[in-house]
């Protein structure tokens, strides 16, 4: 049993099973927002790792192939965007304005809320890049004096939050334009939010993927400026 738990293959298999289980649950619950396969799989596997006391390195070894596919899958977001690109015509100003404003709001509200609630300055900077995709948020965190590993965790949580609650919140606010919904989810919850909305609607998914990319660019450029203004950065 211990031998089996130390095999990377065991965890690759368990990950695929847990994800399938999450998909099954989503379909059984009539696509309930909480039944996101990524959330279900993470909870199940996290509990299994803790219960069996398995080293995270063994798990990472086994699932490296899955993580690797995130790269080509990100490139693949060009395809829905290509199919929906005609919807961008005449939409440049709303696109650019909302992404820039959104990036600034995400960063400043993260910094402000953490500071207001008594968090350390380091924690405030750790929080600032969390709306961008992990490949950007982690190095950015380091640049402004945050804790990169913690930023990675917060980034994932922001993504899961968007997958679970993003579309619901937007519906409450009567944001019905699929383009605006996609931009919002991609700007606040990067790839994980994009994965959710892409399964619901291709227009929303295409704009979410675009928004994720643009938010990464804009935040990379503006966060160092914010660090100068607020006198942070290590």
């Amino acid at each position: 049993m211990t031998w089996l738990l130390d095999q990377p293959l065991t965890w690759l298999f368990a990950t695929l099973l847990a994800y399938r289980g999450g998909c099954w649950l989503r379909d059984r619950t009539g696509r309930h927002p909480l039944a996101q396969p990524v959330l279900v799989a993470v909870l199940v596997l996290g509990a299994l790792l803790l219960l069996t006391g398995t080293d995270l390195d063994v798990f990472d070894d086994g699932t490296a192939a899955i993580s690797f596919l995130l790269g080509p899958a990100t490139v693949a977001l060009a395809v829905p965007l290509h199919r929906q690109l005609h919807r961008l015509r005449g939409y440049a100003v709303p696109l650019v304005t909302s992404i820039v404003v959104g990036s600034v709001v995400s960063m400043t509200s993260a910094w402000g809320l953490v500071t207001l609630l008594g968090g350390s300055e380091r924690l405030a900077w750790t929080m600032t890049p969390k709306a961008t995709t992990a490949a950007v948020s982690i190095p950015l965190s380091e640049t402004v004096g945050g804790v990169p590993a913690l930023t990675a965790a917060l980034t994932i949580l922001a993504g899961i939050l968007g997958a679970v609650a993003g579309p619901t919140v937007l519906t409450w606010l009567r944001v019905r334009d699929a383009r605006a919904r996609g931009l919002a989810v991609g700007a606040a919850s990067h790839g994980i939010g994009t994965a959710r909305v892409l399964g619901d609607d291709e227009v929303t998914g295409a704009f979410s993927g675009l928004s994720m990319g643009l938010t990464a660019v804009v935040t990379s450029l503006l966060l160092p400026v914010l660090a100068l203004v607020l006198g942070g950065g290590a």
């Binding site: 709303p94 909302s98 509200s109 939050l161 919140v169």
Partner: peptide, 28 residues
């Protein structure tokens, strides 16, 4: 600070982009 900061700023970013993009989209 972690949880409130995370949820609060996530919500702020989402709402800002969603409302602004819809408003500007209609206008254009």
């Amino acid at each position: 600070p972690v949880l409130a900061g995370l949820v609060g700023s996530w919500l702020a970013g989402l709402v800002a982009v969603g409302l602004l993009a819809q408003l500007l989209g209609r206008r254009s």
